[in-house]
Design a protein around this nucleic acid. Structure first.
Lengths: 114, 114
DNA sequence: TTAACATATGAACAATTGCTCATATGAAGA
DNA sequence: TCTTCATATGAGCAATTGTTCATATGTTAA
């Protein structure tokens, strides 16, 4: 460990910035949202749900993945409250449950397109 | 592989949504940005640079990590053009090089705080 | 030149991740 | 009931990741 707790270059700037840093909980929460969208399969799932709800099998076709792989990733997105589901007989329909995530995705989509 | 290419539940909905999906390159690029921000250490680095530039050693103090760990992560952020650096003698100052990333972070910060 | 310092980098390692495969669950129809 | 279908889940595995440690690079001052 070479953390320079007292020999840092610019103590004043460090203290200034440390005041503006979000606390640990908020930082972890932010990282978790970004992590949810950092996997191409999960990102595609959320992208596929932007316009309308879909069942697991249809999401699998859209994302070109197996039903099982999609189901695993949907569980992660469900746990993070990014998507929600409703049952209709044998079929489970998934839809987006977090408006903020939609904003994040649209913003990043603008980013890569401009 | 159990991808149901012809036996999917709702072919019409699938086709509708597939038209709206970003292409593979854009999707990967989006995922890469989210991935960059998905690690707490990298996220903290970017957060620490929101208000002003900092040298590696100061970032290490702010993020409570070793200089080496920070240097490794800064290289990743540099490769992705999220941060840039300038040398001043022995010291290397890092700052943010991507306005879109700032917007994404501010948006997600709003999210976790409300 | 040599020493000291700030940063960068490569190898190694543990930990995490995403997928596959097999199996389980739950609902509808025969 | 039994079968079929849609989805869920657990174990196992290969691949990726973030950190540490040792060492290298590049800059300044003696």
């Amino acid at each position: 460990m070479d953390i320079c707790s007292d020999k840092c270059i610019n103590e004043k700037k460090v203290k200034q910035t440390m005041k503006t840093m979000p606390d640990q909980d908020d930082t972890i929460q932010m990282a978790d949202i970004f992590k949810a969208l950092s996997d191409p399969t999960r990102l595609k799932i959320v992208l596929s749900l932007l316009s309308q709800e879909h069942c697991v099998c249809d999401i699998a076709v859209i994302c070109q993945q197996t039903d099982s792989a999609i189901s695993h990733q949907l569980r992660i997105l469900r746990t993070l409250k990014i998507v929600k589901n409703r049952r209709e007989g044998k079929i489970m329909y998934y839809s987006i449950d977090d408006a903020h995530v939609v904003s994040l995705i649209k913003m990043s989509l603008d980013h890569v397109r401009h």
